[in-house]
């Protein structure tokens, strides 16, 4: 895991060096980087009540084609994660991408899941995460043939309604002259969305773990 982490942080290194900010380094790695420290409830033995409709929004895919987020929701159980590629907090977006890689690995091994699951990583930095940048980022993590989509938007104006709809609060960091530093503070949220486009779970840093997410995916597909 540590090598994987170093690789992911390497991706962010330019941003990290260029934009040191006032935040202290994390002192505790999130549970998602370790083996799960408990026996999860068995798939299908619990409920995942709906938390409401998963919103739509404008997107660009890695080819630069315009579309809508709902084009990627509704036909499969989907794990939706908001990230940005220059994120340099180990317990933020790198954690999300690390866990999504773990989900991908587990799903690929499960013939009951492999055609029923999609991962969507959605950038909330349209300025830096252009389709081509996001495409290169995604190539680092997406396994051959796996349905892991990387989406961005054309502009802040196109992005904002989607962030608002998903209650994804983001603070952009600026210097004293008002120049954007390229870093953001946000609350990590990963959404589990069923094939009827309903949000069935939300994970944050202390809850996000590949085993838990896969367990929930199995639970969704058993109902």
């Amino acid at each position: 895991m540590r090598q994987w982490l170093i690789g992911l942080l390497g991706w962010c290194a330019v941003s990290a060096l260029a934009a040191p900010h006032q935040h202290e380094p994390p002192v505790v790695l999130a549970p998602g980087y370790e083996d799960l420290q408990f026996e999860p409830p068995s798939a299908g033995s619990y409920q995942l009540p709906s938390m409401g409709e998963a919103a739509d929004g404008l997107i660009l895919n890695t080819l630069g084609n315009a579309g809508r987020l709902h084009d990627y929701l509704g036909d499969k159980a989907t794990v939706l994660s908001f990230i940005f590629t220059t994120c340099n907090d180990v317990n933020g977006c790198p954690l999300a991408t690390y866990v999504m890689s773990g989900v991908q690995k587990a799903v690929l091994k499960d013939p009951d899941l492999v055609d029923q699951v999609r991962i969507v990583s959605f950038s909330f930095d349209p300025e830096k995460d252009t389709p081509s940048v996001l495409g290169r980022y995604g190539d680092q993590f997406r396994a051959e043939g796996f349905d892991w989509e990387f989406l961005t938007t054309a502009s802040e104006d196109a992005l904002r309604p989607t962030l608002d709809a998903y209650d994804q609060w983001v603070i952009r960091d600026y210097d004293e002259e008002g120049n954007y530093l390229g870093t953001m503070s946000h609350i990590l949220r990963v959404y589990l969305i069923d094939s009827d486009r309903r949000i069935r779970n939300i994970y944050s840093t202390s809850y996000l773990h590949a085993d838990t997410v896969v367990n929930d995916l199995r639970t969704l597909l058993m109902q």
């Binding site: 202290e24 002192v27 503070s185 946000h186 609350i187 990590l188 944050s204 840093t205 202390s206």
Partner: peptide
Amino acid sequence: IFIAALGFLMMAV
């Protein structure tokens, strides 16, 4: 004012 960055500044629970 200093906000801890345990997690990414704002992590849940």
